[in-house]
Design a protein around this nucleic acid. Structure first.
Length: 845
RNA sequence: GCCGAGAUGGCGGAAUUGGUAGACGCGUAGGUCUCAAAAACCUAUUCCCUUUUUGGGAGUGAGGGUUCGACUCCCUCUCUCGGCACCA
């Protein structure tokens, strides 16, 4: 019967389809440039992907997931008439390129360039529709010029300062390590014990924004868990700073010591005070107290690992001084111990052993090793169980904030929560303390003794005083004549050119700062640069900033939750205060993509041999299959294992779509079939349209599959009356639905439809407008109503859609059903619950 | 220890946010085609009982509760995964 179609259809062959369209898109530079927007344009959308480090191993399937997700959203929004900024860039400075240089001698600039080229090729191959004209790389001098400018702005504002600080140091690699590079006290690269070293370092004063970094979270649509992690990191705590007079052995008043506590309610049970080794009073005492001096020395020498191995084992030394608890008139011995941290609170802690485990453990240590200096344990809170027993072991320590006070004079019998208030106020009234707030957040150490980063734009005069590099000397270029071999010194020290340049520009005897900046500095303002990446006069064009920023949607891995986001928000607030930005928060809405695990359900790693290479998947099945499979795996935010065989299922699905469209002119249907085909189509349009903005790509794809399934089954029904073909315009709608997910196949099928006679004046389906659905058409004419007896499903009753609101009619009809006899015979219907179209529940007795 | 997320068939996961649990895909079994295999297509597929169909019972980590009705809400517990961790 078929005539022209007796030729076999061409097979779905992505290897032919995809390169062809890629070439066309590249040639025509589709979406290369961000669209033009007017100020306050409500149609603008800024979609941001957390730019990646261009590692030598190339694109990872995890990259593909988040890039594809954002690409789908972007294409969907474009088809819905939005103007979208969708840029791409490279977090190109960083350790791996430098380590590679140390090993091989190949300069990081070269390695990085090569890696970027690989990434760019791979990303284009999977059809991500980035605005390539806006591409940036943080290692490019046109970019880091502005990173340095930002440093200078902070410097001028007094928010960049130099101070001595303790840093992680790997004696084998001879370099400073970031906290993240220390794993269980060992260097992540060579497993050498990391030690603490005092170095003169540059810091950014992020702490001056700590309160706004908390309150600003109310303005953004981020996952609650993410917000909470930020809050924990900032770690704001309300409490009381109690000031105790300090006396020597012979009761001479010699000063005072302040202790921060969140539990002033327990202060009647305070029996000692502990200073951190860094506490000024401890340092002062060390001058003429040998025991204290040697303890401080030991504490300083301790490595991270040793501290961790010791666990919670306490140590300490008595200072010979006492603090007076004015609530009880008790003389509390003052000790120095390294379990107290110098940088939290006041660096001194008041010990309440009955109600703080660590305090109790310390008392155990003292009472065991210094029996002549025994410290008393006094219970001042009775738990709800009414137990008033002695606190004899660590398990008896009562830390919960529930219970009533005892042994606390006039405050006895108050509930803990009340007592916190009351005693706090009392201390304040007496002038013995004041309400105080402490934070865990510390200033941001940005110095790195590394080569592959942006040089800190500071020069030192012959006396060693720092001066900012003049703005006209930016970019303060990273020298190239350096020795990469680690020597324990900053690699830039080996550059003759760098020193000569400094002397030429600033005078004889002047020296440049040899450290570079933490790469987090580069990566915490890049979203601003995207609007005008080639502008040499400003970090980001003001007019464009006001049009595009803030970022509307940010897709970022959960590993960046704390640092990157905190730093970015800090920079945003700083630049706002400097008058450059007009918004408070850089990222309005944010979501995280999960991790793609190996087929074994474990994190992919070369050593486990479970790495899936996206290039190989594309070679075998094509980019569309890779994209659709990754989106189909499951919810975007979940961790999901790769299933080699499930990829085939997606490939088959795309092949079916291909064949259905190509053979559609030969498919004949009854008008009834066409109608139900259209109904399903419109239901699918609705589902996909609603799912994409919610990032529910897996269910959107499932809906497309369901539609294709129905279509296929219809072609197989042998009916007598079959003379209609599917309307080209409806086929077009379906291809549009497919376009964000499988852009190559959709483009191919769009062209096919044109050759079948579709009249559209467009070069690409990706410029088409998104299909809309007909609400009336969606309604099924027949409704299959579940009928429950006492909440258990007993029958299904199918009724015409126009009867759906007629409860009485339905109940009557259902009662007549023969099936119902069994359940309703000799029973009384006590209650009828009817949710229109959803369920009918008869409650019988 | 603290904070957070989670637990649904053999597997990945759906479920209109309190209304038919298991959509969609994988896998498996049987079938069509084939000399055979692969591919493709069709059918079945939560478990148990009954069984010719019909039918019945159980069932969303465990236990309890609220409700006409609970994967969904509340309480208790177990386990898994992330983050922080001597932070006063």
């Amino acid at each position: 019967m078929p005539t022209e179609s007796s030729q076999p259809l061409p097979e779905y062959n992505p290897a032919k389809i995809e390169p062809r369209w890629l070439e066309v898109w590249e040639k025509k530079r589709y979406f290369y440039h961000a669209p033009k927007v007017k100020k306050d344009d409500l149609d603008k959308v800024y979609n941001l992907f957390a730019f990646a480090y261009p590692s030598g191993s190339g694109l990872h399937v995890g990259h593909v997931e988040s890039k594809t997700a954002l690409d789908i959203i972007t294409r969907f929004q474009r088809m819905n008439g939005k103007k979208v900024l969708f840029p791409v860039g490279w977090d190109a400075f960083g350790l791996p390129a430098e380590n590679y240089a140390i090993k091989t001698g190949v300069p990081p600039a070269e390695t990085t360039k090569k890696a970027i080229n690989t990434f760019r090729r791979q990303i284009k191959r999977i059809g991500i529709s980035y605005n390539w004209d806006h591409e940036i790389a943080t290692s490019h001098s046109g970019y880091y010029k502005w990173t340095q400018w930002l440093f200078l702005k902070l410097y001028q504002a007094g928010l960049a300062y130099k101070a001595k600080g303790t840093v992680n140091w790997c004696p084998s690699c001879q370099t400073v390590l970031a906290n993240e590079q220390v794993v269980d006290g060992l260097c992540e690269r060579c497993d050498t014990r990391v030690i603490q070293k005092e170095l003169d370092q540059w810091y950014f004063k992020i702490t001056s924004y700590r309160d706004e970094l908390i309150s600003g979270l109310d303005q953004v649509d981020w996952p609650e868990a993410t917000k909470r992690q930020q809050l924990n990191w900032i770690g704001r705590k309300q409490g009381v700073e109690i000031v105790y007079p300090v006396m020597d052995e012979s009761n001479n008043l010699i000063g005072e010591v302040a202790c921060f506590t969140t539990r002033p309610d327990t202060n009647f049970g305070a029996t000692f005070v502990v200073l951190a080794p860094e506490h000024p009073l401890a340092v002062k005492l060390a001058k003429d107290n040998k025991e204290v001096a040697s303890y401080l020395d030991q504490a300083k020498k301790k490595t991270e690992l040793e501290r961790q191995q010791e666990g919670r084992k306490k140590s300490g030394v008595f200072t010979g001084l006492y603090a007076v608890n004015r609530l009880t008139e008790r003389k509390m011995p003052i000790w120095v111990a390294d379990f107290v941290l110098g940088h939290f609170g006041t660096g001194a802690v008041v010990g309440v052993p009955a109600h703080d485990r660590r305090d109790f453990e310390f008392v155990q240590f003292v009472n065991q090793h210094h029996p002549d200096k025994k410290i008393e344990v006094i219970r001042v809170v009775i738990g709800p169980d009414g137990k008033l027993g002695k606190v004899k072991s660590a398990d008896d320590v009562y830390e919960a904030k529930v219970g009533k006070l005892t042994n606390s004079g006039r405050f006895d019998n108050l509930e803990v929560e009340e007592a916190i208030e009351a005693i706090g106020r009392y201390l304040e009234k007496k002038g013995w303390g004041k309400l105080a707030t402490t934070y865990k957040l510390r200033d941001w150490l940005i110095s790195r003794q590394r080569y592959w980063g942006a040089p800190i734009p500071i020069v030192y005069d012959p006396e060693g005083n720092p001066h900012p590099v003049k703005e006209e000397h930016l970019p303060w270029l990273l020298p190239t004549d350096v020795d990469f071999k680690p020597t324990g010194e900053s690699p830039l020290k080996s550059s003759k050119e760098f020193i000569e340049r400094t002397e030429r520009l600033y005078g004889k005897g002047w020296r440049p700062e040899f450290d570079t900046m933490d790469t987090f500095v580069d990566s915490s303002w890049y979203y601003l640069r995207y609007v005008s990446p080639r502008d040499e006069s400003v970090f980001a064009a003001k007019e464009l900033l006001s049009k595009w920023l803030p970022v509307d949607f940010y897709m970022i891995g959960p590993e960046h939750i704390v640092l990157h986001l905190l730093y970015s928000r800090f920079f945003t607030k700083f630049l706002r205060d400097q008058g450059y930005l007009k918004f408070d928060e850089p990222f309005l809405k944010m979501r995280h993509q999960g991790m793609i695990l190996g087929p074994d359900g474990k994190k992919m790693s070369k050593s486990k041999g479970n790495v899936i290479n996206p290039d190989e998947v594309v070679d075998k099945f094509g980019a569309d299959t890779l994209r659709v499979y990754e989106m189909f795996m499951g919810p975007i935010e979940a961790d999901k294992p790769w299933d080699v065989r499930a990829v085939m299922g997606v490939y088959k699905f795309l092949g079916r779509v291909y064949r259905l469209i190509l053979s559609s002119p030969d498919q004949k249907f009854s008008s009834q079939q066409v109608l139900s085909w259209q109904r399903k189509l419109h239901q699918t349009i609705k589902k996909v349209t609603e799912d994409i903005p919610q990032l529910k790509f897996n269910t959107a794809i499932a809906a497309l599959m369901e539609f294709v399934k129905l279509w296929e089954s219809q072609t197989k029904v042998d009916q007598v009356e079959k003379k209609e073909t599917l309307p080209l315009n409806d086929l077009y709608s379906f291809v549009k639905l497919l376009a964000p997910f499988a852009p190559f196949l959709a483009e191919e099928l769009f062209n096919e439809l044109k050759s079948q006679g579709l009249k559209v004046d467009l070069d690409s389906v990706h410029f088409a407008s998104w299909p809309s659905y007909d609400q009336k058409l969606i309604q099924n004419q027949e409704i299959n109503l579940p009928v429950q007896i006492n909440g258990k499903l007993r029958a299904k009753f199918s009724l015409p859609a126009d009867k759906v609101k007629d409860k009485d009619w339905i109940v009557n009809q259902v009662k007549q059903l023969e099936k119902m006899n069994r359940w309703l015979k000799n029973k009384e219907i006590k209650k009828v619950v009817y949710v229109p179209g959803r369920v009918l529940n008869l409650v019988v007795s």
